[in-house]
Design a protein around this nucleic acid. Structure first.
Lengths: 195, 195
DNA sequence: GCACCGCCTTAACCCGGGTTCAGTCGGCTG
DNA sequence: CAGCCGACTGAACCCGGGTTAAGGCGGTGC
């Protein structure tokens, strides 16, 4: 969920970024449409966006949130022109007024092939991303929604405050109704612990 | 789940692999212990292994299976010496008699830094891995175990046949009992469809 | 001021999967 | 052969979360 700040980017990537014109998005605007066949990679300069997966019924599951200084891609958070999850539509949407710059996949691929520093930087990002995804996958199976929510509160309080409740539910993989129940139970527990 | 065959590996990586002595494992043997702090990356020459996550109660969830010609790592299926999921133990275990070669993380890191071809090959593997993980994560949330099982049958029949039922259940994120129920329901449906 | 509309909460009911326990079946060993 | 053990199935029961529907409540527009 946490990408590096731009200042950590390798110089060649910073240069590419500087050449991309920034664009502004309002709350709820679409950066990447779930049906887009070859979406760009976005650099989020300021604001907040969500990366989500759409199922056949139109329900969305939030794969992650990305704030200032992070890279997001509908394909998989970094480049690649090959088909990702064939029957799975991924989208990116602004949750707050957001300024972002678009990087073409082809451009990034060319850069990483010609610049070893960029390539190795990508590898480190991707390894970290992979580790996070593995951890989340195991969490979804092995822990209850209540446990996941409690951990979310501990580790990502900063982002939670900026999100409407139904987006948090989408991130936990449950419905807003279920999250409301969980929060009530937690409140009750906290109360009884005090008394 | 599907890594490339060795013949697709870049030459420098093939050379590194050739220098690593093969080791043999029997059914149930441990390639990577869940408590190992800096496990190697294994190249599975022949056989079948599972990569799993252990929760606090000792229940295991199968993140994936790897057969002939694939690379597996407890950290995240390819290199990196940084801590992965802090509170999550990952292990690798042989499910059949398996021959594998160990590659040290440090060795791989050095190689990818000095060889641009290797670096870019890693990037492509990692992008694909990432895409698969994203798809699986969304599946866990958005589809029922029965749907996941049906898709598994369609796409990975080859690997399923070689697995005991409780390992498949561990891969679907359910218990063997639940999988048994699902299979019964599917049999009933198939029967009634015939009549 | 009022009507309206999102967002959140509560409650009632349903269902998928977990849990436990009791088989059945096949393979192995003495 | 009997006895045992591990893998799988079945049935009964529980519980977490989905679903639906009915409010509460604050913001916005008229």
């Amino acid at each position: 969920m946490k990408n590096p700040m731009q200042s950590d980017f390798p110089p060649a990537l910073q240069a590419l970024l500087a050449r991309a014109a920034p664009r502004d998005f309002t709350n709820g605007a679409t950066l990447i449409d779930a049906t887009d066949a070859s979406p760009p990679v976005w650099y989020v300069e300021s604001g907040l966006v969500r990366l989500y997966a759409l199922d056949a019924d139109g329900h969305s599951y939030n794969l992650g949130f990305h704030a200032d200084g992070e890279l997001v891609s509908g394909r998989l958070a970094l480049g690649s022109d090959q088909v990702c999850c064939v029957d799975r539509a991924l989208g990116v949407e602004a949750l707050q007024p957001t300024r972002a710059r678009a990087l073409a996949l082809a451009e990034l691929d060319r850069l990483r092939r010609s610049d070893a520093e960029v390539a190795n930087w990508f590898i480190e990002r991707l390894l970290q991303l992979n580790a996070e995804r593995l951890g989340r996958e195991a969490d979804l199976v092995q822990r209850s929604a209540a446990e996941r929510y409690a951990e979310l509160l501990r580790k990502n309080a900063g982002i939670i405050e900026r999100l409407p409740l139904h987006q948090i539910a989408g991130w936990l993989g449950i419905t807003p109704v279920a999250l409301s129940r969980i929060r009530r139970r937690m409140r009750k527990q906290a109360d009884s612990a005090v008394s």
